[in-house]
Design a protein around this nucleic acid. Structure first.
Length: 566
RNA sequence: UGGGGCGUAGCCAAGGGGUAAGGCACGGGGUUUUGGUCCCCGGAUUCGGAGGUUCGAAUCCUCCCGCCCCAGCCA
């Protein structure tokens, strides 16, 4: 049982850990780590790794470190460090005092490198990047040894120290491991351990001008921290022999690298490169745009940490490349919010309705249930009067077969109020669009039931015109029109699949007055429509802005789609 | 013509010799003052394919097919 949810289902990593514990490997200890590179914002794919690593630690009574993998100062910044920490906490995890940086280990790593040189297992290579590439061979052809492959240990030591001292320019020399230029695994063809980067680092400043590569850093950092299970994604699978080689040759405690498949979701993109492109080229409004699968975007959109955790738990952990249906994420959110969200009435596209037989100046307070799933949420009052607004799409002048809502001559229920019957439609002279309805109400149906047992086919939400408050509501839908954004015509690019209608802004919405003093972070349901949250950036006291997190499941929409599809 | 992985329903996924869990999606029905929720019911004669071992195979063996990753001084 974990502190962040129910016990999760079995997976191959747990099987491995169970086996390790049975064999008393690491004395039964489980210690993981989440190792982000601080070069971008976290997205839900990272959340999968976070939940896995922190979750395993919880499940096995172990620990999980947060370690920034900051070995490349040319692309990493403190700004990202802060957002990453914030997002992890928001997701519900805590690294206590175990916040580390790979750069904390630069001194040790340097000593390890010296150790390998002394063992004759590493050498300074003067080849250019271009030349290294050319001598590496190809997938099917072995590489050739560098002309510097057999430099003496003394010369290597001297050169490496001079690299550190800043005697050479960027890219002029590297330190390489001496392994096997004919290995089938390219990673073993004398990989680079250190490169010269005349760049100051966000943590170590100008102390270093040589920086270790990922491969020469990650395993050793795991070892230094006593990590028992080093979990990463599939593309590192063929780095594992190198990971093991370094630990073995340096002769330090070994941790075990285990790889799992990254999360992919349909109708969106989950690569830092593509997300960055969307942000920088302003297809969206920043990293926290509610349409983005970044944690900051999902948070602003209204997703809850628990729903994201639940989702990630349900999809499981495996080694198979897969694309998960984003409908499952939405389901997890609805499942949670259905139980907890207070219900309100909000009219997004108002259509004026005059109740002709209702007294002119009368106002009644109608009693409404706050959450039918939770009686303890109590009741509230909603003012009702002669002029109200209903949803534009709840009226059709010439309704199709399965349309149950309001139409000329038809009677419906106004939720928590009265039965009303449409007597007259007033239309815009130019467009022919209905702009106002005249209805009559049945005074005996107060509260929503008629004493004569008369049935009505639908219940509409409404708002009193004079008492409602104005708001802006932003409706979001998938950022891409295709399940797989990369599915493009010859010569086109994935961005041509961006959905031009992913954001619809409604500026004249009318809300029931109970929603007046609502603050950012507030989640609620607008009845019959969906779950909404108050936008944390653009809301003002004068005019709140609501983001639609997700729609309610909608049978009517499905009926229409089916009819339209034929 | 190299190396490393992966194939169980439309999408995820458990199961690793004893006769195919679960969730989402989808469809049907019931309840309902949200076309919401909730409750029933419906799916794999079969686990990429073909052989083989076995009383018995998704699980073991052989061969074949398909898909993904690797030629950064990125992580």
């Amino acid at each position: 049982m974990s502190s962040t949810g129910s016990p999760s289902s079995s997976n191959f990593i747990k099987n491995i850990i169970d086996e390790d514990i049975k064999n008393n490997k690491n004395n039964g200890r489980v210690h993981t780590r989440f190792p982000p590179e601080p070069n971008g914002y976290l997205h839900i794919g990272h959340a999968k790794s976070i939940c896995l690593n922190f979750g395993l630690a919880e499940d096995y009574n172990g620990l999980c470190n947060l370690r920034f993998d900051d070995t490349n100062p040319t692309r990493e910044e403190v700004e990202y460090v802060e957002s990453i920490k914030n997002d992890i906490r928001w997701l519900g995890f805590d690294w206590d005092d175990r916040l580390y940086y790979a750069s904390d280990y630069f001194d040790t790593l340097f000593e390890y490198a010296v150790r390998l040189i002394k063992k004759g297992k590493a050498y300074v290579c003067d080849l250019s990047a271009q030349e290294i590439r050319e001598t590496r061979g190809t997938l099917t052809k072995p590489g050739t040894n560098s002309p510097y492959h057999n430099r003496s240990i003394e010369e290597n030591l001297d050169l490496f120290k001079r690299m550190r001292a800043g005697e050479f320019e960027d890219g002029h020399r590297v330190l390489r491991a001496k392994i096997d230029m004919s290995a089938g695994n390219l990673n073993m063809r004398d990989p680079v351990m250190y490169r010269i980067l005349m760049t100051s680092h966000h943590r170590t400043g100008d102390k270093w001008c040589i920086y270790p590569t990922y491969d020469f850093t990650h395993g050793q950092s795991d070892s230094i921290e006593g990590i028992t299970h080093s979990i990463c994604t599939l593309e590192f699978e063929d780095h594992r022999p190198l990971y093991d080689w370094y630990l073995n040759e340096i002769d330090i405690q070994r941790s075990r690298q285990i790889e799992f498949a990254q999360l992919n979701l349909n109708y969106t993109v989950l690569s830092k490169r593509k997300l960055r492109e969307l942000v920088e080229e302003e297809y969206v409004n920043g990293w926290n745009d509610p349409r983005l699968p970044t944690l900051s975007g999902l948070r602003r959109r209204g997703f809850t940490p628990a729903s994201i955790r639940k989702f990630l738990d349900l999809i499981g952990i495996a080694k198979r490349d897969s694309i998960v249906d984003i409908a499952l994420l939405e389901h997890c959110l609805r499942e949670e919010l259905n139980l907890s969200a207070l219900r309100y009435m909000a009219v997004l596209r108002p259509l004026k309705v005059v109740i002709t037989n209702y007294p002119e100046d009368s106002v009644e307070e109608m009693e409404a249930v706050n959450n039918p799933e939770d009686p303890s949420a109590g009741m509230r009052h909603i003012p009702f009067s002669k002029v109200i607004y209903i949803e534009r799409e709840d009226f059709m002048e010439d309704p199709p077969k399965k349309f149950y809502r309001l139409a000329p001559g038809r009677e419906v229920r106004l939720r928590y109020a009265y039965f009303i019957k449409c007597e007259k439609v007033i239309k815009d002279k130019k467009t022919g669009e209905p702009i106002e309805l005249h209805c009559t109400y049945d005074p005996a149906s107060r509260g929503g039931n008629s004493p004569d047992g008369r049935k009505v086919k639908s219940t509409l939400h409404w708002v009193s015109a004079a008492h409602s408050i104005e708001a802006e509501v932003r409706l979001y839908s998938h950022l891409f029109t295709k399940e797989n954004p990369s599915d493009v015509e010859e010569g086109e690019d994935w961005k041509s699949n961006i959905n031009p209608d992913s954001l619809e802004v409604l500026t004249s919405c009318r809300l029931e007055p109970n929603l007046k003093d609502v603050k950012p972070g507030f989640h609620c349901q607008f009845e019959r429509q969906g779950y909404f949250t108050v936008d944390s950036i653009d809301s003002t006291d004068r005019k709140p802005v609501f983001n639609r997190t997700v729609t309610l499941r909608d049978a009517w929409v499905r009926i229409q789609k089916r009819a339209g599809g034929k």
